[in-house]
Nucleic acid binder design. Structure first.
Length: 358
DNA sequence: AAGGCGGGGCC
DNA sequence: GGCCCAGCCTT
Protein backbone atom coordinates (compact mmCIF):
# COMPACT_ATOMS: atom_id res chain seq x y z
CA UNK A 1 0.00 0.00 0.00
CA UNK A 2 1.72 3.12 -1.19
CA UNK A 3 0.65 6.72 -1.57
CA UNK A 4 -0.41 7.97 -4.95
CA UNK A 5 2.17 10.71 -4.52
CA UNK A 6 4.92 8.10 -4.57
CA UNK A 7 3.82 6.38 -7.76
CA UNK A 8 6.51 6.52 -10.43
CA UNK A 9 8.98 7.85 -7.86
CA UNK A 10 12.30 6.01 -8.04
CA UNK A 11 12.88 5.44 -4.34
CA UNK A 12 16.12 3.44 -4.66
CA UNK A 13 17.72 6.00 -6.90
CA UNK A 14 16.67 8.81 -4.59
CA UNK A 15 18.13 7.00 -1.57
CA UNK A 16 21.40 6.20 -3.32
CA UNK A 17 21.91 9.71 -4.68
CA UNK A 18 21.05 11.31 -1.36
CA UNK A 19 23.14 9.03 0.83
CA UNK A 20 26.20 9.14 -1.43
CA UNK A 21 25.98 12.91 -1.53
CA UNK A 22 25.65 13.07 2.24
CA UNK A 23 28.71 10.92 2.90
CA UNK A 24 30.74 13.08 0.54
CA UNK A 25 29.46 16.49 1.62
CA UNK A 26 28.40 16.33 5.26
CA UNK A 27 29.73 19.03 7.52
CA UNK A 28 32.12 18.16 10.30
CA UNK A 29 29.90 19.03 13.27
CA UNK A 30 30.70 18.46 16.95
CA UNK A 31 27.71 16.16 17.49
CA UNK A 32 28.77 13.98 14.59
CA UNK A 33 31.97 12.74 16.25
CA UNK A 34 30.21 9.72 17.70
CA UNK A 35 26.72 8.30 18.11
CA UNK A 36 26.38 8.75 21.85
CA UNK A 37 22.59 8.88 22.29
CA UNK A 38 22.91 11.53 25.01
CA UNK A 39 24.91 13.85 22.78
CA UNK A 40 22.62 13.24 19.81
CA UNK A 41 19.71 14.07 22.09
CA UNK A 42 21.26 17.30 23.39
CA UNK A 43 22.12 18.41 19.86
CA UNK A 44 18.64 17.71 18.54
CA UNK A 45 17.00 19.71 21.33
CA UNK A 46 19.35 22.63 20.74
CA UNK A 47 18.75 22.50 16.99
CA UNK A 48 14.99 22.93 17.35
CA UNK A 49 14.16 26.18 15.56
CA UNK A 50 17.82 27.13 15.81
CA UNK A 51 20.55 27.31 13.18
CA UNK A 52 23.59 25.06 13.25
CA UNK A 53 26.04 27.97 13.51
CA UNK A 54 24.22 29.27 16.57
CA UNK A 55 24.16 25.87 18.27
CA UNK A 56 27.83 24.85 17.85
CA UNK A 57 29.37 26.91 20.69
CA UNK A 58 26.43 26.16 23.01
CA UNK A 59 26.75 22.44 22.35
CA UNK A 60 30.48 22.51 23.07
CA UNK A 61 30.05 24.34 26.38
CA UNK A 62 27.07 22.22 27.40
CA UNK A 63 28.80 18.90 26.80
CA UNK A 64 31.98 20.08 28.47
CA UNK A 65 29.97 21.06 31.51
CA UNK A 66 27.62 18.06 31.47
CA UNK A 67 29.51 15.22 29.73
CA UNK A 68 27.03 12.51 30.73
CA UNK A 69 23.37 12.00 31.55
CA UNK A 70 24.30 11.72 35.20
CA UNK A 71 26.10 15.08 35.19
CA UNK A 72 23.07 16.83 33.75
CA UNK A 73 20.70 14.99 36.08
CA UNK A 74 22.73 16.13 39.08
CA UNK A 75 22.98 19.76 38.00
CA UNK A 76 21.11 22.73 39.42
CA UNK A 77 18.36 24.00 37.12
CA UNK A 78 19.59 27.58 37.43
CA UNK A 79 23.03 26.36 36.38
CA UNK A 80 21.53 24.63 33.34
CA UNK A 81 19.57 27.77 32.40
CA UNK A 82 22.77 29.82 32.74
CA UNK A 83 24.46 27.48 30.28
CA UNK A 84 21.45 27.81 27.95
CA UNK A 85 21.37 31.61 28.35
CA UNK A 86 20.97 33.33 24.99
CA UNK A 87 19.88 30.24 23.10
CA UNK A 88 16.17 30.89 23.63
CA UNK A 89 13.15 28.61 24.11
CA UNK A 90 14.27 27.92 27.65
CA UNK A 91 11.60 25.28 28.24
CA UNK A 92 13.84 23.11 26.07
CA UNK A 93 16.52 23.21 28.76
CA UNK A 94 14.10 22.57 31.60
CA UNK A 95 12.36 19.73 29.78
CA UNK A 96 15.66 18.19 28.73
CA UNK A 97 16.91 18.06 32.28
CA UNK A 98 13.62 16.63 33.55
CA UNK A 99 13.70 13.97 30.85
CA UNK A 100 17.34 13.13 31.57
CA UNK A 101 16.49 12.66 35.23
CA UNK A 102 13.69 10.35 34.13
CA UNK A 103 16.12 8.30 32.02
CA UNK A 104 18.56 8.03 34.93
CA UNK A 105 15.91 6.92 37.41
CA UNK A 106 13.56 4.84 35.26
CA UNK A 107 15.82 3.45 32.52
CA UNK A 108 19.13 2.86 34.29
CA UNK A 109 20.75 5.83 32.55
CA UNK A 110 20.19 4.26 29.12
CA UNK A 111 18.33 6.39 26.58
CA UNK A 112 15.34 4.25 25.57
CA UNK A 113 15.74 2.91 22.04
CA UNK A 114 12.06 2.50 21.24
CA UNK A 115 9.48 5.02 19.97
CA UNK A 116 7.04 4.60 22.84
CA UNK A 117 9.36 5.26 25.78
CA UNK A 118 11.48 7.80 23.94
CA UNK A 119 8.50 9.80 22.72
CA UNK A 120 7.06 9.93 26.24
CA UNK A 121 10.02 11.94 27.51
CA UNK A 122 9.52 15.66 28.13
CA UNK A 123 10.47 17.73 25.12
CA UNK A 124 10.86 14.75 22.79
CA UNK A 125 8.28 15.16 20.04
CA UNK A 126 7.82 13.31 16.75
CA UNK A 127 10.83 14.90 15.05
CA UNK A 128 13.31 14.51 17.91
CA UNK A 129 12.16 10.96 18.57
CA UNK A 130 12.82 9.97 14.97
CA UNK A 131 16.12 11.81 14.89
CA UNK A 132 17.47 10.03 17.96
CA UNK A 133 16.21 6.61 16.86
CA UNK A 134 17.72 6.94 13.39
CA UNK A 135 20.97 8.75 14.21
CA UNK A 136 21.90 7.09 17.51
CA UNK A 137 20.25 3.69 17.06
CA UNK A 138 20.13 3.33 13.29
CA UNK A 139 16.40 2.65 13.18
CA UNK A 140 14.39 3.56 10.05
CA UNK A 141 12.10 6.12 11.71
CA UNK A 142 11.07 9.36 9.99
CA UNK A 143 12.40 12.65 11.38
CA UNK A 144 10.40 15.35 9.66
CA UNK A 145 11.47 18.93 10.28
CA UNK A 146 11.28 22.10 8.22
CA UNK A 147 14.13 20.99 5.98
CA UNK A 148 12.50 17.67 5.18
CA UNK A 149 9.18 19.29 4.36
CA UNK A 150 10.87 21.83 2.11
CA UNK A 151 12.97 19.27 0.25
CA UNK A 152 10.18 16.74 -0.16
CA UNK A 153 7.58 19.36 -1.08
CA UNK A 154 9.85 20.19 -4.00
CA UNK A 155 11.01 16.71 -4.93
CA UNK A 156 7.46 15.34 -4.80
CA UNK A 157 5.87 18.66 -5.85
CA UNK A 158 3.47 18.81 -2.92
CA UNK A 159 1.45 22.02 -2.84
CA UNK A 160 -0.26 21.62 0.54
CA UNK A 161 0.25 24.21 3.29
CA UNK A 162 3.11 22.90 5.41
CA UNK A 163 1.95 25.05 8.33
CA UNK A 164 -0.95 22.66 8.85
CA UNK A 165 -0.37 19.81 11.32
CA UNK A 166 -2.10 17.23 9.14
CA UNK A 167 0.23 18.03 6.26
CA UNK A 168 3.24 17.25 8.44
CA UNK A 169 1.70 13.82 9.06
CA UNK A 170 1.54 13.30 5.32
CA UNK A 171 5.27 13.99 5.11
CA UNK A 172 5.93 11.51 7.91
CA UNK A 173 4.03 8.91 5.92
CA UNK A 174 5.98 9.65 2.75
CA UNK A 175 9.24 9.47 4.68
CA UNK A 176 8.34 6.09 6.15
CA UNK A 177 7.93 4.83 2.61
CA UNK A 178 11.12 6.24 1.16
CA UNK A 179 13.56 6.05 4.10
CA UNK A 180 16.56 3.77 3.62
CA UNK A 181 16.56 0.63 5.76
CA UNK A 182 20.30 0.22 5.19
CA UNK A 183 21.37 3.66 6.39
CA UNK A 184 18.46 5.53 7.96
CA UNK A 185 20.88 7.81 9.79
CA UNK A 186 22.50 9.05 6.58
CA UNK A 187 19.11 9.25 4.91
CA UNK A 188 17.53 11.49 7.55
CA UNK A 189 20.61 13.61 8.08
CA UNK A 190 21.13 13.72 4.33
CA UNK A 191 17.74 15.29 3.62
CA UNK A 192 18.29 17.85 6.36
CA UNK A 193 21.82 18.58 5.20
CA UNK A 194 20.54 18.97 1.66
CA UNK A 195 17.89 21.40 2.90
CA UNK A 196 20.48 23.40 4.80
CA UNK A 197 23.16 23.52 2.09
CA UNK A 198 21.49 23.13 -1.32
CA UNK A 199 17.70 23.03 -1.23
CA UNK A 200 17.54 26.33 0.67
CA UNK A 201 14.37 28.38 1.21
CA UNK A 202 15.43 31.05 -1.26
CA UNK A 203 17.49 30.51 -4.42
CA UNK A 204 18.00 26.77 -4.09
CA UNK A 205 21.17 25.59 -5.85
CA UNK A 206 19.50 23.05 -8.08
CA UNK A 207 22.58 22.79 -10.30
CA UNK A 208 24.44 21.23 -7.36
CA UNK A 209 21.60 18.98 -6.25
CA UNK A 210 22.21 15.22 -6.11
CA UNK A 211 18.51 14.47 -6.59
CA UNK A 212 17.79 17.03 -9.29
CA UNK A 213 16.82 14.21 -11.65
CA UNK A 214 14.15 13.03 -9.21
CA UNK A 215 12.82 16.52 -8.46
CA UNK A 216 9.35 17.19 -9.85
CA UNK A 217 9.42 20.87 -8.88
CA UNK A 218 12.67 21.37 -10.77
CA UNK A 219 11.29 19.53 -13.75
CA UNK A 220 8.34 21.93 -13.81
CA UNK A 221 10.41 25.00 -12.87
CA UNK A 222 8.40 25.72 -9.73
CA UNK A 223 11.01 25.02 -7.04
CA UNK A 224 11.00 28.68 -5.96
CA UNK A 225 7.26 28.57 -5.27
CA UNK A 226 7.53 25.63 -2.88
CA UNK A 227 6.89 24.90 -0.15
CA UNK A 228 3.55 26.63 0.35
CA UNK A 229 3.32 28.04 3.84
CA UNK A 230 0.61 30.26 5.33
CA UNK A 231 1.80 33.36 7.12
CA UNK A 232 2.11 33.80 10.85
CA UNK A 233 0.11 36.62 12.32
CA UNK A 234 1.83 39.80 13.42
CA UNK A 235 3.09 40.32 16.96
CA UNK A 236 1.53 42.80 19.37
CA UNK A 237 3.77 45.41 20.98
CA UNK A 238 3.70 45.76 24.77
CA UNK A 239 5.31 48.85 26.36
CA UNK A 240 7.17 48.57 29.67
CA UNK A 241 9.23 50.81 31.89
CA UNK A 242 12.24 48.72 32.87
CA UNK A 243 14.00 49.84 36.02
CA UNK A 244 17.68 49.74 36.92
CA UNK A 245 17.27 50.20 40.67
CA UNK A 246 20.50 50.43 42.68
CA UNK A 247 21.39 51.22 46.28
CA UNK A 248 24.49 52.91 47.72
CA UNK A 249 26.37 49.59 47.75
CA UNK A 250 25.94 49.32 43.99
CA UNK A 251 23.54 46.43 44.31
CA UNK A 252 20.68 46.07 41.84
CA UNK A 253 17.14 44.80 42.25
CA UNK A 254 16.46 41.71 40.15
CA UNK A 255 13.58 39.24 40.21
CA UNK A 256 13.04 35.67 39.14
CA UNK A 257 10.26 35.29 36.61
CA UNK A 258 7.33 32.92 37.05
CA UNK A 259 8.09 29.21 36.80
CA UNK A 260 5.70 28.98 33.86
CA UNK A 261 5.23 30.91 30.67
CA UNK A 262 7.56 33.30 28.91
CA UNK A 263 11.21 33.10 30.01
CA UNK A 264 10.21 30.90 32.93
CA UNK A 265 12.63 30.92 35.90
CA UNK A 266 14.91 33.44 34.22
CA UNK A 267 15.95 36.64 36.04
CA UNK A 268 15.18 40.20 35.04
CA UNK A 269 15.17 43.80 36.19
CA UNK A 270 11.75 45.06 37.30
CA UNK A 271 9.41 45.72 34.40
CA UNK A 272 6.38 47.96 34.83
CA UNK A 273 3.55 47.18 32.39
CA UNK A 274 2.98 50.82 31.64
CA UNK A 275 -0.35 50.48 29.84
CA UNK A 276 -1.84 49.11 33.07
CA UNK A 277 0.06 51.17 35.64
CA UNK A 278 0.65 54.57 34.06
CA UNK A 279 3.78 56.71 34.22
CA UNK A 280 2.56 58.51 37.33
CA UNK A 281 2.26 55.42 39.51
CA UNK A 282 5.59 53.70 38.97
CA UNK A 283 7.03 54.33 42.45
CA UNK A 284 3.78 53.19 44.02
CA UNK A 285 3.74 50.03 41.93
CA UNK A 286 7.33 49.21 42.89
CA UNK A 287 6.46 49.65 46.56
CA UNK A 288 3.46 47.32 46.22
CA UNK A 289 5.32 44.77 44.16
CA UNK A 290 8.71 44.65 45.90
CA UNK A 291 8.20 46.48 49.18
CA UNK A 292 10.91 49.02 48.50
CA UNK A 293 10.91 52.80 48.15
CA UNK A 294 12.62 54.21 45.08
CA UNK A 295 13.47 57.58 43.56
CA UNK A 296 13.25 57.64 39.80
CA UNK A 297 16.17 59.13 37.91
CA UNK A 298 17.12 59.66 34.31
CA UNK A 299 15.65 58.02 31.29
CA UNK A 300 18.56 56.00 29.92
CA UNK A 301 17.19 54.90 26.56
CA UNK A 302 14.88 52.54 24.74
CA UNK A 303 15.13 48.89 23.77
CA UNK A 304 12.93 47.01 21.37
CA UNK A 305 12.97 43.26 21.75
CA UNK A 306 11.19 40.99 19.27
CA UNK A 307 9.87 37.56 20.28
CA UNK A 308 8.02 35.09 18.07
CA UNK A 309 4.62 36.21 19.34
CA UNK A 310 5.08 39.62 21.05
CA UNK A 311 7.32 42.68 21.00
CA UNK A 312 8.62 44.35 24.13
CA UNK A 313 9.13 48.09 23.96
CA UNK A 314 11.31 48.94 26.95
CA UNK A 315 11.88 52.44 28.33
CA UNK A 316 14.89 52.11 30.59
CA UNK A 317 14.86 54.35 33.65
CA UNK A 318 17.41 54.43 36.44
CA UNK A 319 16.32 54.61 40.06
CA UNK A 320 17.84 54.57 43.52
CA UNK A 321 16.73 53.03 46.77
CA UNK A 322 17.99 53.09 50.33
CA UNK A 323 16.94 49.50 50.90
CA UNK A 324 19.64 46.96 51.61
CA UNK A 325 17.34 43.97 52.00
CA UNK A 326 14.30 42.52 50.30
CA UNK A 327 11.82 40.04 51.71
CA UNK A 328 10.37 38.31 48.66
CA UNK A 329 11.95 34.95 47.78
CA UNK A 330 11.99 35.72 44.06
CA UNK A 331 13.52 39.19 44.49
CA UNK A 332 17.16 39.93 45.24
CA UNK A 333 19.55 42.82 45.70
CA UNK A 334 22.64 41.67 43.87
CA UNK A 335 26.05 43.28 43.52
CA UNK A 336 26.65 44.54 40.03
CA UNK A 337 29.61 42.21 39.65
CA UNK A 338 27.53 39.18 40.65
CA UNK A 339 24.71 39.70 38.16
CA UNK A 340 26.53 37.42 35.71
CA UNK A 341 25.87 34.50 38.06
CA UNK A 342 22.17 34.58 37.14
CA UNK A 343 20.50 33.55 33.87
CA UNK A 344 19.08 36.61 32.09
CA UNK A 345 17.21 36.79 28.80
CA UNK A 346 19.04 38.68 26.07
CA UNK A 347 16.78 41.72 26.41
CA UNK A 348 17.93 42.24 29.97
CA UNK A 349 21.56 41.53 29.16
CA UNK A 350 21.27 44.45 26.78
CA UNK A 351 19.89 46.55 29.62
CA UNK A 352 23.05 45.97 31.64
CA UNK A 353 24.97 48.01 29.10
CA UNK A 354 23.02 51.05 30.32
CA UNK A 355 24.19 50.69 33.92
CA UNK A 356 26.45 53.49 35.13
CA UNK A 357 30.12 52.64 35.56
CA UNK A 358 31.60 52.91 39.04
C1' DA B 1 -6.17 23.32 14.94
C1' DA B 2 -4.18 27.26 16.92
C1' DG B 3 -1.32 29.79 19.86
C1' DG B 4 2.59 30.29 23.26
C1' DC B 5 7.36 29.94 23.36
C1' DG B 6 13.62 33.14 21.94
C1' DG B 7 16.87 34.75 19.38
C1' DG B 8 19.66 35.60 15.36
C1' DG B 9 20.59 36.12 10.50
C1' DC B 10 18.98 36.96 6.03
C1' DC B 11 16.66 39.78 2.59
C1' DG C 1 9.82 45.11 8.12
C1' DG C 2 9.02 39.79 7.15
C1' DC C 3 10.83 35.12 6.89
C1' DC C 4 13.30 31.14 8.35
C1' DC C 5 15.47 28.17 11.40
C1' DA C 6 17.24 19.85 12.77
C1' DG C 7 9.75 21.81 17.06
C1' DC C 8 7.20 20.94 21.39
C1' DC C 9 3.56 21.82 24.63
C1' DT C 10 -0.91 23.26 26.02
C1' DT C 11 -5.55 24.26 25.17
Amino acid sequence: MIDKTLQNFDISKFQANLINWYHANKRDLPWRKDQDPYKVWVSEIMLQQTKVDTVIPYFQRFITKYPTLQDLADADQQDVLKTWEGLGYYSRARNLQNAVREVVSAYGSKVPANPKDLGALKGVGPYTKGAILSIAFNQPEPAVDGNVMRVLSRVLKIEDDIAQPKVKKDFERYTKNIISDDDPSAFNQGIMELGALVCTPKSPMCMLCPVQEQCRAFEDGVEQKLPIKSKAKKQKTIPYVALLIRNEKNEYIIEKRSETGLLANMWQFPMVPIDEIGMDHIENWVDMEYGIQVDLGNNLGKLKHVFSHIIWQLDIIEATTESEKVIDKRVKLVDKNRLADYPFPVSHQKMMKYMREE
